[in-house]
Design a protein around this nucleic acid. Structure first.
Length: 583
RNA sequence: GCGCCCGUAGCUCAGCUGGAUAGAGCAACGGACUUCUAAUCCGUAGGCCACAGGUUCGAAUCCUGUCGGGCGCACCA
């Protein structure tokens, strides 16, 4: 329960009471009322627009309403006073002890301060990465992977029942290409001269060990055999090998998945047909001919009747094909079945994390979800924009042809997991992001990862020093929570506490908006407040955390910074960044 | 041609789903180290929130249009 909720309740009681005794109508819609900290700290601790919202319903001037409510607020326990300001805002100032005591609340929560139940244990499925198993993960995949992973953690932290999922695209034509490429390496491993890798096959060195493993397992069994004989077993073998590699890559970034879902199983089990039958039953499939697109017309365009899904019924631009010209299912058809399967497994909220280049695919999937669930299941597709790699300001050149693209592993090896994760979360997902190797490894406040980590490490540094100075001092959270919090009177201390009081609200809003980057920004600001307080101790010895001759004051200060530490650690954990205790 | 995303300080970006005088970092300038790690902090300066309308008590935020940038546009994945 955070403090804003507490006073929101009190405020509602006041409105109801005023409704019963006189001035206000009995039934009042409070849905647009906000109860939040004011932007400007001089406006008190809590600000509400309630008078402005009620002005129509109560048919009174905002300021008159505000005066009535403010007078009542002044009587509430813990409220110092309620002021009316501007057009009719009510600013509530809390008594100092209410603010101070929050430190104890944070410590007693034991790292769970900010955890909430807004998610109501709703079953939500977050799908991310979902890369073709045809090669190692490269930089482009990094961002979506980290975003999805952090978002899943954030939702888990806010009371959703989260499943993390990877959709393995192991059924398409590219897997045949993979199998042929692996077959070539297999022949090579058995001593054949394969020369240059032909255009259209995967040239990467990562397939060499796969070829060797194939040779070890099968010997010369597939040599000089027709492709139709070996393609299936080698597809399976190569796909498994690629997935092993991808899983290992993901592990270097601590990206977790609960389920790896194979597209192939949808084809093999007939689930695609089942899902399409559902659409058919709703009258949403038909055979038709698509118009060519208006702009640049494809050269090989030909009019042809196809089985189409009527996605235009749900706001899509054109209806979408579910069957290819050779009669096999389209990628979209499998995706229909996949999302249908998620619904069948009981998820009521689906989140897909894709690269921005798949933006044109969003509407048709949204359409399917709406059609199959009758609007009961929500789909939220989060698109991640590109990452521009830079080295000291100059773009890193990458060319697929020469094979000089940078892999996820390259990046992690160079700058470390924590840096990659944090930096990738310092932008909104739908804004492009610059990743400069020089800048992200810098040890200065220019580098947010470092800055936040440093604040956390600094707290631990003080705690170590304090224990040395006061060997008998009990520094457990329970003990610190009993400290004399009334020592916090300096504006920087109070400002720090107010900032921490905002943590639960931030987490909640970040979860509802599905924007984990807000956590990163919050942490940066909290770290900044902490560093500021630290430096005040340089000028004013009485503001230091450790006061040599005053164990009680020291105890309170340690309580304060332990609370900071708990929140930074919680936030970093959500982002998947390790809160280090020493640097 | 159509759809989606983005235009906020010189640069890179936040802005808590509509709140009060729009905020950080970098770069510029001026200050604070016999320290609980100055790996930090404090101060100054910098804005027609792309532009034009609309919605209302109130708009950077929502709606419409214009301009500028990114992505996508049968059967691939």
């Amino acid at each position: 329960m955070n403090i804003f909720d507490t006073y929101a309740g009190a405020l509602k009681d006041i409105i109801t009471r005023l409704g019963e005794v006189g001035p206000f109508p009995k039934a009042i819609d409070l849905s647009n009322v906000t109860i939040e900290p004011p932007r400007d700290a001089s406006h008190g601790d809590i600000s509400t627009n309630i008078a402005l919202v009620l002005t129509k319903q109560a048919r009174m001037k905002p300021r008159d309403i505000a005066d009535l409510v403010a007078a009542e607020l002044g009587k509430i326990d813990g409220v110092d006073r309620g002021d009316v300001a501007g057009p009719g805002f009510i600013n509530i100032s809390l008594k100092a002890n209410v603010i101070q005591s929050q430190v104890a609340n944070i410590l007693k929560a034991d790292g769970q301060y900010g955890r909430s139940d807004v998610g109501n244990q709703e079953k939500v499925n977050v799908e991310y990465v979902s890369v073709n198993p045809t090669g190692p993960l490269h930089v482009g995949h990094c961002r979506g992977a980290i975003f999805g992973d952090a978002l899943a953690s954030l939702l888990d932290y806010t009371g959703y029942d989260v499943a993390r999922e990877y959709y393995i695209n192991d059924a398409g034509g590219q897997i045949d290409v993979l199998a042929r490429s692996a077959y070539l390496r297999y022949a090579e491993a058995l001593g054949q001269d394969i020369g240059e890798i032909p255009e259209g096959l995967y040239p990467g060195d990562y397939l060499i060990p796969v070829g060797k493993a194939l040779a070890d397992k099968y010997g010369e069994k597939w040599l000089d055999k027709m492709e139709s004989e070996w393609i299936l077993p080698i597809r399976k073998f190569a796909t498994d090998a690629m997935m092993d590699m991808i899983r290992a890559d993901l592990e270097t970034l601590a990206i977790k998945h609960d389920v790896f879902f194979s597209e192939l199983t949808l084809h093999d089990s007939g689930k695609i047909q089942v899902a399409l039958d559902k659409l058919e039953a709703k009258g949403l499939l038909y055979t038709g001919v698509l118009e060519p697109p208006k702009g640049t017309k494809p050269d090989d365009w030909e009019m042809r009747p196809q089985t189409l899904f009527k996605s235009t019924d749900f706001g899509d631009d054109v209806d979408r094909a579910v069957q290819k010209s050779d009669g096999s299912w389209t990628y979209f058809a499998a995706d229909v079945a996949y999302h249908y399967d998620k619904m069948e497994r009981g998820f009521t909220s689906l989140i897909d994390v894709w690269g921005a280049d798949h933006g044109g695919y969003v509407k048709r999937v949204e359409s399917v979800i709406e059609a199959l669930s009758d609007g009961k299941v929500s789909l939220d597709v989060r698109l991640c924009q590109m990452v521009k790699l830079l080295r000291d300001g100059t773009p890193v050149k990458m060319s697929k042809r020469s094979g000089s693209f940078i892999t996820m592993r390259d990046i992690v090896d160079e700058v470390g997991k924590d840096v990659v994760r944090f930096i990738m979360l310092t932008r909104k997902n739908d804004a492009s992001l610059d990743f400069d190797f020089a800048r992200v490894t810098e040890q200065s406040k220019d580098n947010p990862v470092f800055y936040v980590q440093y604040a956390h490490a600094r707290v631990h540094s003080v705690l170590r020093k304090a224990q040395a100075a006061f060997p008998a001092l009990d520094m457990s959270k329970d003990s610190l929570a009993e400290a004399r919090m009334s020592v916090f009177t300096d504006s920087s201390e109070l400002s720090l506490i107010r900032n921490m009081m905002n943590w639960p609200r931030f987490v909640k809003s970040a979860a509802l908006a599905r924007e984990p980057h807000r956590i990163a920004y919050y942490l940066y600001e909290l770290a900044s407040e902490f560093h500021a307080l630290w430096n005040k101790g340089n000028d004013n010895l009485d503001l230091r955390f450790i006061i040599e001759d005053d164990i009680e004051k020291t105890r309170a200060r340690l309580a304060l910074i332990s609370a900071v530490r708990d929140i930074i650690a919680s936030g970093l954990n959500i982002l998947g960044v390790e809160p280090v205790t020493e640097m």
